[in-house]
Design a protein around this nucleic acid. Sequence first.
DNA 1: ACAAGTCCTTACCGATTGGTAAGTTTTAGC
DNA 2: GCTAAAACTTACCAATCGGTAAGGACTTGT
Lengths: 205, 205
Amino acid sequence: MTTSTRDKLLAIGLEQFSQRGFDGVSIASIADALGLSKQALLHHFSSKEKLYGEILARISSEFEGRVAALTPGSDTPESIAALMVGLFEDSQEHPQQTSLLMRELLDNSQRARRAGRWFLRDFLAGLIDRVHALPPWRHHPRAMAEAAAYQLLGAVNYFAISTVTLRAILGNEEYTAMHAAFPGQLKAMALATLSAGPIMGATSD
Amino acid sequence: MTTSTRDKLLAIGLEQFSQRGFDGVSIASIADALGLSKQALLHHFSSKEKLYGEILARISSEFEGRVAALTPGSDTPESIAALMVGLFEDSQEHPQQTSLLMRELLDNSQRARRAGRWFLRDFLAGLIDRVHALPPWRHHPRAMAEAAAYQLLGAVNYFAISTVTLRAILGNEEYTAMHAAFPGQLKAMALATLSAGPIMGATSD
DNA sequence: ACAAGTCCTTACCGATTGGTAAGTTTTAGC
DNA sequence: GCTAAAACTTACCAATCGGTAAGGACTTGT
């Protein structure tokens, strides 16, 4: 199979940006990884920002596609819990994309890297809508569904970026056991949270 | 109050590194923020890595201190749920430290920035021990307590780094409402998860 | 055959990077 | 009031950064 140079550059760019961040990677190092000169890269992408933006745009559309594939017709606590497990598996299959998105979350504070924002917006809004539509949640403020949805997202994504560090801390064997236990626990947590509905009462300690 | 130049450099360094990452910040920009020359900084810290390392070391010891203050004598699901809420409030009070640690988690894959790893190890091992010692968990494999503990940690920390992006996506008002609902939901989720104990059965879909 | 376009090269560019060298000002001990 | 260390400065440095300019090699349509 013949992959175009352009696609190879995007793939290498994703790999390097996800590992070292936008500022940690030079366009020369990306081109080098393909045995090309820096200017060969600039022939395909007129600037570093353009390359990065296109990588982000690709992640965005791929992610949307995968989420759409995970979305069932009707919604129950079970189906949304299954969606979370699906997102987890997804994040394991595409760790570089997950890392890059996490970096965007961190960097968005400073830069306006609008690219990733709107697809995150749609994804998040959709997820919140679906949680808020569940019987235990629909008669309570939307903010509660938002909090719960985001906590579940955090449980999924935080793990996805911790692979290397966790493996170093726990050791390979223990990490593997934990990894195996993860989806089951995640499903249980999501199910318990979504079925129970929002907690009114005091919001702080 | 007189803060030493050295301490000011550490504070500004934390601010800038947390926002733009190690590679996104130049030592000149840190020195500049204090109206000093780049070489004034190099007088106090012999290299950029040294400065960064010391910032990380300070975060580490501060974090350990705060966690110790949150730790009660006995453990129940309630006390660990309260610890999670405490960690959340902590992350809100020290957003820069939280961001920087998250960047370390992402960067540890590539670099060996040993400084942060061992205190993370101690903290995580301690947390897992405490979950594993709870009655519903103690007779099951440790990996299950690890998975649950890490999911709760993810729920806390993922939110902590999303402030700016979430506020942009949800709007200020809705974000504030969500933020207010967060600790209550977090406590409920932790409580439900920790009280229920591990899920055996199939681990994947 | 030739013109045009694609894909890549070498040769540059000014700006910025982390860091060294050497000297000046300020502070502190005695 | 002298000395010495601490806290800074200006002046440099080679290396690397993202990006421009110009041209060569190759393909393709006419």
